[in-house]
């Protein structure tokens, strides 16, 4: 079970039509690869965020598969051109079944 998992997102509050905006996301997570062993030589079970998605007004715009090689606290930054006002929904899927979400509204005009 992952501890202290907190998603963080930064989206501009407003944008002009046709303007490219930067979206930054980060989730604090230990991203245990499953390759390491503890002091007694037992394998530490894999516990990672395995998928990250971004939806805008219900339509999927980004879907990322994350593998164990991705390091701790996965950070994604991407550009978006937003056609209309609405809200972004960001979702992270944990190996342990937990799902973390965050939403951000943006005004276009």
């Amino acid at each position: 079970m992952a501890d202290n998992v907190t998603p963080r997102v930064r989206v501009p509050k407003s944008a002009k039509a046709g303007e490219s905006i930067a979206i930054k996301t980060l989730i604090s997570h230990q991203m245990e690869s499953g390759q390491r062993k503890d002091k007694d030589g037992n394998a530490i079970p894999r516990s990672i965020i395995n998928r990250f998605t971004c939806d805008f007004n219900g339509q999927n715009v980004l879907d990322v598969t994350i593998e164990p090689a991705v390091s701790t606290n996965p950070y994604f930054e991407f550009q978006a051109i937003v056609p209309e006002s609405g809200s972004f929904t960001f979702t992270w899927y944990d190996d342990d079944g937990s799902v973390y979400t965050d939403t951000k509204d943006i005004a276009v005009g």
Binding site: N4, R8, R10, K24, L26, S28, N73
Partner: peptide, 12 residues
């Protein structure tokens, strides 16, 4: 601060 991973420790 958003890009500075050290700030995660500050938050905790």
């Amino acid at each position: 601060d958003f890009d500075n991973p050290g700030m995660l420790a500050v938050e905790s």
